[in-house]
Design a protein around this nucleic acid. Sequence first.
DNA 1: TTGTACGCGTTATCAA
DNA 2: TTGATAACGCGTACAA
Lengths: 352, 352
Amino acid sequence: MDTADVKNRVRRGSGRPTLADVASRAGVGTITVSRALRHPERVSAELRARISTAVNDLGYVLNPNASALASARAAVIGVLVPSLTNNVFAEVLRGIHDGLVDSRLQIQFANTHYSDVEEERLLRVFLSQYPSALIVSGIDQPPATRSLLENAGCPVVQIMEIGPEPVDMMIGFSHFEGGKAVARHLIETGCRRIGFLGARMDPRSHRRLAGYRAVMEDAGCFDDALVTTTTMPSSVSMGGELFRQAFSKTPDLDALVCNNDDLAMGVLFACHRAGLSIPERIRLAGFNDLEMMRVAFPSITSVRTPRYEIGRQAIAMVQAALAGEKPPETVVDLGFELKIRESTTQMNPRNS
Amino acid sequence: MDTADVKNRVRRGSGRPTLADVASRAGVGTITVSRALRHPERVSAELRARISTAVNDLGYVLNPNASALASARAAVIGVLVPSLTNNVFAEVLRGIHDGLVDSRLQIQFANTHYSDVEEERLLRVFLSQYPSALIVSGIDQPPATRSLLENAGCPVVQIMEIGPEPVDMMIGFSHFEGGKAVARHLIETGCRRIGFLGARMDPRSHRRLAGYRAVMEDAGCFDDALVTTTTMPSSVSMGGELFRQAFSKTPDLDALVCNNDDLAMGVLFACHRAGLSIPERIRLAGFNDLEMMRVAFPSITSVRTPRYEIGRQAIAMVQAALAGEKPPETVVDLGFELKIRESTTQMNPRNS
DNA sequence: TTGTACGCGTTATCAA
DNA sequence: TTGATAACGCGTACAA
């Protein structure tokens, strides 16, 4: 094949206008167009205008695949969550998404199903494309996964919890303190036989349980029989299930701390059905403070957790890092708020 | 710069092994490696083994960005949903995700917030990277959006609903029929003053309302005053809100059809609080059949919708299309199931 | 079945 | 501030 053939080579292009098309129309080099799009301030006003016109005339759209290849950086943020049906993570995702409007970054997410093995596998998939940032749930990554994160070559945010040794950044709150807060509230209002119901029992659940236990031991009230857990997924019906187990083990229960609001709802319904009044016979508290807790009958005490804010601020931290800013805070504690409601107070809710 | 300098050129590589590295180690051409990875059956067993060894030795991982550029096809499937907090779409996403294990495709999702403008914008972003497939919610895309979808150059699945003119493929069920089913059930059990509560009022909500209305008119029971809706987001507390509005407009209500289960929960709690018994005084039905409906007290009649299955099968349809299979069914109706429970039957729930 | 040569569309390098 | 040129790493076309 001689050089004369070169021009006859088949072009495989998609037909979409390219940077080169824009460049020739604007009478500039391709790199100038690239610059004008990415760093407008580094290009003279005149060229910027000519390029802008050409872009509009041609309907040019950047090819992110080519960009990713050339720069070894994809405009994608990888997000790993352990569950999707769990309302908590849906809210986190919403926060992440809302934090990303007006950004060229895309969310790519994956569901680890609470599996460390899956998490590591998915992380490798994400890493293969040189993501702009990674957001992972929890702080208990096994060594291999942690090592992958440390060498990710991009900002990494661990969300939902806080701990002493962030891979890079962390945002969340203390589940241990959350567990303590609920238990303390019940102790303070006079309860002694306070049960704990937990499902799934991921690391965060264990920390809430540990918080509950610490308070109970302090008060001299702890009793193994008061704790009822399962590794099965959490659900409203599981709440009823666990309640029945707990109530048959310890019929002298005077309160129940639930690991999350789904379980608490299940307990509420089970008590209604069994004719056990809340809060008169049994006091009840949940965790997360889903919207429903406030309007339930009776309304249910819960720990409000900043799920949306976690997602939102995780993105803010990522963006700051990508902009080269190094904030002093690499570990952000967003705290929580104990919402005390009818289910743990004596008043007759119908008169409230 | 003379040719002698060429070898001194700065390499910008990431340091990761490339196809060429694998090829030279295995003593084959790069394209053979590429083929061995994508279509193992087209490569001889011997080379396949040598290549496999080289891949493992080097820890080679495909660079999806380069792959996407070369083939003008990213291993990404774009998913557009109108909401994330809505449990319904969380389940759809879960189905999509589960359908994608063992696939090299990644999910890239975006939240349209029920906005057509956002939907179009996000679609353009997705399209710019040549996705392998697109999944969009609903069937009411405006002309511009529809045109984008028709020219997407990849499989497109419209989910949640079915209709006469799919862009490409559709999977869902008839919301109109769903609305009819609930209303018919209530009419058949003797109700006449059946209210309808709706929030958000997206196209699917309107179709459920239309189904309800059709049945009510048929029965000679329709009354505008029985319909209470808002365009505000749906929530449990909004259910209580709408109930109070409806009850003051039409205190002779004998049943309520709720546009979704969140509203129904809100009604349940509001009735408890107001001392109105369900089902004795007011019968109640929801839509979607969230897990909670089954264990609520009283348990709540609802229309079970195949949310997880929609996601799951949407992926199956995509994969079939990508494999070149053209199934006869481009519109798949997954149907729904009316779950009749205590909230619309006379028995005293505590004895059940 | 296997290999060669080149194109995909962008960004980095370096010089002007 | 601007541009020429190469490089990113893989897939396609076509030939062997």
